[in-house]
Write a protein that binds this DNA or RNA. Sequence first.
DNA 1: CTGGATGCAAACGCTTTGCAAATAG
DNA 2: CTATTTGCAAAGCGTTTGCATCCAG
Lengths: 142, 142
Amino acid sequence: MEPRQHPPESTKDSLTRSQAQVLKLMQHLDCAVSAQELFTMLRNQHQNIGLATVYRTLKALTLRGIVQLRTSTNGESLYSLVEQDTHHLTCLNCGQSFPLKECPVHELEANLRSSQAFKIYYHTLEFFGLCSLCQLQLEVGT
Amino acid sequence: MEPRQHPPESTKDSLTRSQAQVLKLMQHLDCAVSAQELFTMLRNQHQNIGLATVYRTLKALTLRGIVQLRTSTNGESLYSLVEQDTHHLTCLNCGQSFPLKECPVHELEANLRSSQAFKIYYHTLEFFGLCSLCQLQLEVGT
DNA sequence: CTGGATGCAAACGCTTTGCAAATAG
DNA sequence: CTATTTGCAAAGCGTTTGCATCCAG
């Protein structure tokens, strides 16, 4: 990746105005949301913010290890706090996503953490397949 | 998700022309590729195919449990055969991705498979953080 | 013949970028 | 006062869709 023209607003200790706004909102949410949803919510709360700023903010928070993201089946990025670590069972056909509680990966993550130069912030684990409804729907078309 | 106007070209036993083309190419590749890369490769081999068809084909193969996908950091979908199951360690800053051999998840997957109506095709597991180079680069900006 | 598959180009939607104004320290 | 940060609008870019044509059975 090429060097950025604007130096990154990433590895500083203090939060910018928008970072504080976004972070505060996310702490009140219990699930992952898209940038556009965050944008709309903030606007509804009469908090002035631009969509581009939301994206820039989320990128910065991600590089600081505060926020994590995964991609929904429609190609949208869904953001959540790293602490709210959850995995999913996602239907390839309808895109519906069911949260999972179990996570057998923390052990491996610990190993990787101690043995590599790579600095791990978070991981995503997602199972893909067909939910029961979509299994039926597709069988009909056979 | 709404019902599709064209019934899915998904759960039939035989392969369409394009499915055969794409599948054959993918079997000769050892890593995940984007739809556009597949399109270019096929064109270079003088195999007539449209980009839209590549996308439709990949979707169909995914719904049949033959192909899996993950999203690269730049938002592109990367496709591979389900058999070539690999996980990754991905840098949030430069986007570089390192393949992982270990996978502690198959056990959980087996459990899910037997206990749920959900029909699991594959899973993705990805670790995100900063590679050593990017750690340095970002520290400078502090 | 009939319905699905394909190609092309246009449309879409999420995300990023250029640039000038606002803000922070 | 200088360097970031922000907002807006425009551009970017991967993906999807409309539609006419092609092909398979």
